[in-house]
Simulated scan of single mutants.
Amino acid sequence: MVSSSHEAMHRIFQKDTALLVRSLQRLLHVPFPEPVDIMTLDVDLTEIEPVERRCDTLLRVDTDDGNYLFVIESQGKKDESKRGSWPYYLSYLYEKYHCEPVLIVVTQSAATARWAAKPIQFGLPGWSSLTVRPLVLGPDNVPVITDRQEAERDVPLAVFSAITHGRGAGSAAILEALAAALKTIDREAAGMFAQLTRSGLVDPRAKEIWEELMTATKYFFDHPFAVKEREDGRAEGREEGRAEGREEGREEGREEGREEGRAEERAETILNILSWRGIDVPPAVRARVTACPDLEQLKAWSERAVHAADAAELFKGDGA
């Protein structure tokens, strides 16, 4: 039951709406500007319709010094609506769990990281009623892990490094170190991390490099995370097949075309890997790679492209 003193303490400001402003100015010495208008609004904050609000990941962390909630938000770009939703998350979670909430923003963009790191402040200039200061993990503070031993010491961090920095000319070295580290851990965990890396890479070129590195690793393709993607692809292929018709001659022609397309795509990937690594590709090497129709041979060359010191090493051991 709400006491009469409770009611009186706030209702006085309904009777004299300017009293609160005068109190701020004279009693608390807050330099609040003179109001132009003051309105009394409905105090009912109940939402008529349920509004779904979800953070990306929520972790409870218990320590000897206290319990915390880690509210993790993955942010791809600036979004001013977060100015309202992030403080809401923290307030709601504190009220629900009575644990200290900590907002952590993760991003692949340096510009987004700088934006997210700015405090969100509500209230008066120089006197905030509520301040939210996110902790931000992004390109400026996530390490670039290109050393195999360093990747092996902390595989999840190596995955995070690959997702954060996996773009541009340096991506091959990061992904190569991670691929080697995955071979040193539990197969199930390796499959999960491999698929997370594949999903997290936004640069198409880096994703191609990763898929080439994982080609010889069966767990990558057998892991449950990858199964749905393959099943969706098969369903689309079956639908296309029904639409195209099933005449044997046409099917043979389509299969030949698909085979040629796969060879061309793999050849292009090999040349791109060399180019991304800063290795010069002579015309003779380019011609030999693009003319090769053998998928197994192209697969071998693509694996060598990740390690080769020069373009000629692609053909090492193949003969003339």
Rank of each mutant, 00 (worst) to 15 (best):
D62P: 03
C99A: 14
C292L: 15
A173M: 03
E268R: 15
A151W: 02
R148L: 10
K96A: 15
E239M: 02
I209C: 01
A180C: 01
D310I: 07
G253V: 13
F220E: 00
F13T: 04
G76Q: 09
V306K: 01
L69C: 08
K183T: 03
L213A: 00
L271K: 11
K118V: 08
H223Y: 15
M1L: 04
Q297C: 12
S199L: 06
L93R: 05
R11K: 15
V142H: 09
R230A: 05
R266N: 04
E80K: 08
A180T: 01
E239I: 06
L28S: 06
L24N: 05
T46F: 05
E252W: 13
A235R: 12
L24Y: 06
R258S: 00
H6A: 10
E152C: 07
A189F: 08
D147S: 14
E260G: 06
L274P: 01
S91R: 00
V159H: 00
R266I: 09
D294S: 10
E100G: 08
Q25V: 10
V306N: 04
Y92A: 11
T184E: 09
T17S: 03
N141M: 11
T40E: 01
P204R: 03
F315L: 13
C99H: 11
Q297R: 15
A111T: 02
R26G: 08
R288T: 11
R288C: 15
L175F: 02
G168D: 04
V102R: 12
R205C: 03
I270L: 14
R304L: 05
R167W: 02
W127Q: 12
F315Y: 10
G278C: 04
D318W: 14
S199W: 06
R254F: 06
A312K: 06
T57L: 14
E239P: 03
L103Q: 00
L135K: 11
L90P: 03
L24E: 07
E211Q: 09
K218N: 10
L182K: 02
G317H: 09
F122A: 14
V21H: 13
V159T: 05
G319L: 07
E47S: 08
I120Y: 03
A320T: 09
E208S: 01
A284F: 14
E265M: 13
D280E: 15
S3I: 14
R167P: 00
D186V: 04
V61S: 05
C99P: 08
I270H: 10
R83K: 05
G257Q: 12
L175M: 01
S3K: 04
A190H: 06
P125A: 12
D65C: 13
E259W: 15
S85E: 14
G253S: 13
E239V: 12
E80R: 04
T107Q: 02
E260F: 10
P283A: 15
S5Y: 10
I104D: 02
A226V: 07
R230L: 12
T17H: 02
R11I: 14
A113G: 11
C292W: 14
L130T: 12
N272K: 10
Y68H: 08
G249R: 14
M214W: 00
V36I: 11
D232H: 11
R250C: 06
E188Y: 10
W127V: 13
S81N: 09
N272D: 06
A158M: 01
